[in-house]
Amino acid sequence: MLFYSYFKTLVGKEVTVELKNDLAITGTLHSVDQYLNIKLNNIRVVNEQKYPHMLSVRACFVRGSVVRYVQLPPGSVDVELLHDATRREARGG
């Protein structure tokens, strides 16, 4: 639940989601669920020329299982908080 809780704090922020098929999408995080499925608004594809089918898409749902990375906005990473939450999670699980 650690990362689900963490991603909920990022709602409204701009993130870049990189998928396992190499597609990278920047957009405003609209919502996230327990599987880390993600909904993004106002999206733009990083390499638009290579993915012309995405030109007409402005919001999307991304299945959590196809995500490789999410680039996080530096201002919203509280390192101390993450350490504490991780230690708590490690004890509990």
């Binding site: 098929n21 999408i25 030109l55 007409s56 898409v57 999307c60 299945r63 196809v66």
Partner: peptide
């Protein structure tokens, strides 16, 4: 089947079909 889904989008009618195609 869900496992085959990568992404489901919402179309912007103004940019459909994608310009330049």
């Amino acid at each position: 089947r869900g496992e085959n889904v990568v992404l489901l989008g919402q179309l912007d009618a103004a940019r459909e079909p994608p310009p330049g195609l």
